[in-house]
Amino acid sequence: MLMLTCPYCGIKADETELTPGGEAHLTRFGPEASDEDFESYLFQRKNPKGVHFERWRHAYGCGKWFLAARDTATLEVFGTYPAQSKAPPKRLLTAIRRKRPGWEGWE
């Protein structure tokens, strides 16, 4: 049972107040996209054992979607940040690299 801090309302929310939304930072491919790009957008997910960027919605709270960086094996949470982000914040990436030397990065 995780606890994640909603970056919008500052609440440390219980997992039962949230709904999960899968992998974060997907790039949408629309009608003009190639089969390969569309397949990768629609189906190919990272599913790492380790650092993962994922979407959560504060469904029982402010209703906002936010993003979290979390270790899927240890459940360590490195940070949460607004969904209106094209990439994880630099400070967060630095913090993760410090804790996980050799981490391959988020992209």
């Binding site: 995780l2 606890m3 270790d71 240890t74 459940l75 360590e76 949470v77």
Partner: peptide, 8 residues
């Protein structure tokens, strides 16, 4: 090798 929490 303890159980670890949210902050690792």
């Amino acid at each position: 090798r303890p159980p670890t929490g949210a902050d690792g």
